[in-house]
């Protein structure tokens, strides 16, 4: 599934990096610890987090993730949004809490790598 299809299915808004909405989502990962994500998230993963600063974008780009979901209605910081726009890394926003986002992604067929 593409990021766009997932965003549509779960009613999530793209708040930055919309040029990358056609990226293919191949797995999922949820964590607020950046080194945890660095160590374990796979290429193409959609990352669910409540971190909103620009280092999130840096991590997502380095790992070739497909998108980041900012859960819990938190707002992405402006410098992070600018970086995501410049590099086409989709940043999705939702009021749903992280657990709920992960559950709904799973229901759509997205799996973690275990």
């Amino acid at each position: 599934m593409t990021v766009q299809e997932i965003a549509d299915a779960l009613g999530m808004a793209c708040v930055a990096g919309s040029s990358g909405m056609d990226r293919e989502v191949t797995s999922g990962y949820a964590s607020d610890l950046l080194s945890d994500v660095m160590g374990h998230a796979r290429d193409g993963a959609i990352w669910v987090t409540s971190q909103v600063h620009q280092n999130v974008v840096a991590v997502a780009l380095l790992l070739n993730l497909s998108a980041v979901v900012i859960a819990g209605g938190l707002q992405l910081m402006e410098d992070a949004a600018a970086r995501a726009d410049a590099r086409g890394m989709p940043m999705l926003s939702t009021e749903l809490p992280a657990f709920e986002v992960a559950g709904r992604l799973y229901r759509l067929g997205v799996r973690g790598e275990v």
């Binding site: 607020d32 610890l33 950046l34 080194s35 945890d36 660095m38 160590g39 987090t49 971190q51 280092n55």
Partner: peptide, 15 residues
């Protein structure tokens, strides 16, 4: 609070 300092940096590097 920014999500750093999880104590996983050096182990990640070694891996």
């Amino acid at each position: 609070e920014m999500g750093f300092g999880a104590g996983m940096g050096l182990p990640n590097m070694r891996r």
